[in-house]
Design a protein around this nucleic acid. Structure first.
Length: 573
RNA sequence: CGGGGCUUAGCUCAGCCUGGUAGAGCGCACGGUUCGGGUCCGUGAGGUCGGAGGUUCGAAUCCUCUAGCCCCGACCA
């Protein structure tokens, strides 16, 4: 491909409405163009990267036993009413009406469609399992679209759905998908991590997320540098490394005046102790009534863990005006000692500790020496800790690190939620009707491409991993000498014949302009053909990732080397 | 949904406070110059100043409404 014949235009300045690197660089490199908030055109260069990723995804999905199909983007309301999500889904679901005033939606996901397809087509255990996938455009009317392709409203996603007669069968498909995802991200040469994830309100028994590590990521990921443990901080478990409360002999319960000392910091400072020696008391409201949650004063509670452990549907902080009703103490001075009858959940790290400093359930007073069993009834102990950097890995005891990650894939075992709601059943060997057991497996295509840029760029532009680069090689000609152009054309043709994605910047521009553009768009390999080197029969090539390492050679040698290098880097299989 | 900001040439922005019929840089076209890291000089094209209404002799500028976009928060997987 020649630059002059392609559709490329580069911009010198960042678009004013972009806020992440990938969006700025993709816009400046003419890979995407925004049409409306969260809605983008994929320009030719951007589409090439998307297609390359899609090819990798298809290969790995097919290899893992999934079968491709394509479902409608527009779906009738009926199936969403059947699953119940028509009523649950809120404004994120784009609802539209047709000319007959019938309700439709633009699909944000396709559980309903696939379930209706399968239930109508499959009746026997003999036909199961099946695993169907598609790569398709979806729409979620995000409250606040941002970050370019990373959180758009319209986006391309690969979604797969598997149907089974047993949990064992689901496990097999789940494992195959998990392996396929690992292969996909490895083949893209991305630094990523697979983590345990919270299953959220969807339920189900297992769930893994795949995160591409990047500073701009929206999720915090706890990762053990030694063993393979990784988890979204929503779910991550760990042990606090440093000592906090002691387990020494219990001191007597003593009430101390703490005038106007409402925060843990105030109380600790006032009493001359570390915040880790104070017990933080948090009040939450839930659908099952208010609960009290206790944790070491220097740490934060993971509300998702509270919700999951307590078995409640929702958990929110209790408002100050309801404290008296719930525990009989004012906000800032509540604690387990002398509280009204209320469910109390304490972080596991508090188990076996003594001499707590806690609120006294009256204004301007705290207790010291508060001890479980003697001064108040033993609470339920559970893991409700929000892990942070330095907490110890439960598997191997190593201090964990917290990194930012971009969620690019999410797989989970759905169970029978949709099959039951939508009557997707099969006859088993005994002739009994059973709901199919489902799994679902999502992968954000545009988001993965964007995350590759978030992870791989420098001040000059994108640094594409070879497997998803729009073009693998850029030939830059310096000057318009006939010899230069002939040589460049020959190199171009040879590379193309060898199956390399190559572009030749044949514009009548100064070399500096071409170099800048090549760096911005991020072609992994650059071959420079200039009159000076060519006088000695040489051309030059270098890698975008390591521009200082310049290699000189005869055109044919360079072609051979570049072809070999790229074929290896593609890492097929 | 709450708070804040923005909308002027293809792009990035100035002009608005203190009303007098619109500017710069980049890009684009043409001429010259230069030619291995966004050359330099000149000429030129290009804008109903987001939209509607109002105040005024006169509105990009002041007022009201409205739309779009961005940020922070809330929400959400």
């Amino acid at each position: 491909m020649r630059w002059s014949q392609y559709f490329v235009y580069t911009l010198r300045e960042d678009p004013s409405d972009a806020d992440v690197i990938s969006q700025k660089l993709m816009t400046r490199a003419s890979m995407i163009k925004k049409l409306a908030a969260g809605i983008y055109t994929y320009l030719p260069l951007g589409l090439r990267s998307i297609h390359k990723l899609e090819s990798i995804v298809r290969e790995e999905m097919n290899r893992a036993g999934a079968v491709e199909l394509s479902m409608p983007a527009i779906q009738p309301a009926e199936i969403w009413q059947e699953s119940g999500r028509w009523f649950q889904y809120g404004k994120e679901l784009l609802r539209i009406k047709d000319r007959h005033d019938r309700d439709f939606i633009f699909g944000p996901t396709h559980e309903e469609v696939i379930t209706s397809v399968v239930r109508d087509s499959i009746n026997s255990y003999r036909q199961l399992p099946v695993n169907l996938y598609q790569i398709q455009t979806k729409f979620r009317d995000e409250v606040r679209p941002r970050f370019g392709l990373m959180r758009g409203r319209e986006f391309i996603m690969k979604d797969a759905y598997s149907f089974h007669t047993s949990m064992e069968s689901l496990d097999d498909a789940y494992t195959a998908m998990r392996d396929a995802y690992n292969r996909i991200f490895k083949r893209c040469a991305l630094d990523y991590v697979m983590v345990d994830a919270d299953t959220g309100n969807i339920g189900g028994s297992a769930s893994h997320e795949f995160h591409v590590m990047a500073k701009s990521g929206e999720d915090a990921i706890a990762r053990c540098p030694k063993c393979s443990y990784g988890a979204n901080t929503e779910k991550a478990v760990g042990t606090i490394a440093d000592a906090g409360l002691g387990s020494d002999a219990a001191a007597p319960l003593t009430e101390v005046a703490t005038p106007n000392m409402k925060s843990i910091e105030d109380v600790a400072k006032f009493l001359g102790v570390a915040t880790s020696r104070v017990v933080k008391t948090l009040m939450y409201d839930t659908d099952l009534g208010p609960i009290m949650v206790l944790i070491r004063g220097d740490r934060e509670v993971n509300e998702i863990k509270v919700k999951n452990y307590s078995g409640t549907q929702w958990v929110v902080m209790l408002t100050d005006d309801r404290f008296d009703e719930a525990v009989g103490g004012p906000a800032g001075f509540v604690g387990p000692v002398g509280a009204k009858k209320i469910r109390v959940i304490a972080d596991k790290h508090l188990e076996g500790t003594t001499n707590w400093i806690t609120g006294a359930n009256k204004l301007d007073a705290h207790y010291t020496g508060a001890t479980i069993g003697r001064d108040f009834e033993a609470p339920e102990f559970a893991d409700v800790l929000l892990v942070r950097e330095g907490d110890l890995c439960l598997r191997c005891g190593t201090a964990m690190e917290i990194h930012r990650g971009i969620e690019v894939g999410h797989i989970f075992k759905l169970g029978t939620k949709y099959s039951k709601a939508m009557n997707c059943v099969f006859l088993d060997e005994a002739g009994e009707r059973q709901p199919m057991i489902m799994g679902c497996y999502g992968l954000g295509v545009g988001r993965t491409v964007a995350s590759a840029i978030e992870q791989n760029h420098d001040a000059d532009g994108i640094i594409w991993p070879i497997p998803i680069a729009p073009f693998e090689v850029m030939i830059v000609t310096a000057g318009q000498d006939e010899n230069v152009r002939t040589t460049a054309a020959a190199i171009h043709d040879k590379l193309e014949a060898a199956g390399i994605d190559v572009m030749w910047d044949d514009r009548d521009e100064r070399p500096g302009v071409k170099f800048k553009d090549a760096d911005l768009v991020g072609f992994p390999v650059k071959i420079t053909v200039g009159a000076k080197s060519l006088a000695e029969g040489n051309v030059e090539w270098s890698l975008r990732r390591d521009p200082k390492a310049r290699n000189i050679g005869k055109p044919d040698e360079v072609v051979a080397k570049v072809v070999a290098m790229i074929e290896e880097a593609r890492g097929t299989r």
